[in-house]
Amino acid sequence: MKRIFLSLIFIALAATACQPTTNISAITPPYIDTGVDPEAWVTVPAGDFPYGQESHLTSLDYDYQIMVTDVTVSQYAEYLNSALASGDIYSGDFTVEAGEQVWTEKGVGGYYPGDPFQGGRHEEKIKAGDHLFLPFVEGVRLNHSGDVFTPVPEYANHPMTMVTWFGANAYCQYYGGRLPLAAEWEKAARGIKISNDDGLPFPWGEEIHRNNANYYSSFDLFEKMYGKLGNTTPVGFYNGRTYTVDGLTYQTLDSASPYGLYDMAGNVWQWLGDDLPYQHYRYMRGGSFYSYEVDLRVWKENSAGPQFYSPQVGFRCVRYEVK
């Protein structure tokens, strides 16, 4: 009995020791063309839609456009090069504040006018001044030489991650847009259909299958290639195509939202534009490749301070003007 018990412990420890110890930045997947255009926008017309878990009928009385995919690494590189050239942003050392924590990071940043301060309990001031947009740290999928940025080729059409809320906000504003508000994001993600008193829980429908989206243990192509660790997938990956890479074949389901948006569930969390009073946390929606499927439901949220960046957080933009 004692031997069996000790053997079990040994096997468990040995199995643990055999786990791959790579990290995300160590993975370089092959470039995969999904056929989805990251430059595309769609119009979401004014009208009612089911909002939140309880599907409260909510109205947005204006049309707006939203990007079909998350902002890609390639698009963000273009922005950096353009904004650096025009002097809107600069690279250097930035003081980062989060609660009582203050530190300095190298990266690219620029001006943000600050959040209105209400003097609430535990409220943190988000001051006007220069803030970090993108740190120069491991995991940023850009190469840079001086102030010229180029995407790591294999990741060019993956969602841009490691961007702070300030950096995401600045990108959208630079191109005449802004980050979507929670209501705008959710409407674009789930549409207006209501059945049995509920709106859609996922952009594509009622149920989630493993080849609908990139989430934790969804056994997507990269999980098959690199283990449970997972990684981002190229934007628009889950569009019904079958991909064959390194001898592995992977069939996706077309998981576009009712308005034709991709990656509104899974892959990366997406920054929202709302600034909630008294706290100034910034909210995110959509879930990521690190999330369990329950967090991919359209009403589930995540939040962090605007200085936060992560390999599982990206963004997309909206604009009022219908072009």
Binding site: A98, Q101, E124, Y281, A304, G305, F308, S310
Partner: peptide, 8 residues
């Protein structure tokens, strides 16, 4: 110190 730095 923690919750201002960590995501929700």
């Amino acid at each position: 110190e923690i919750f201002r730095v960590w995501p929700a």
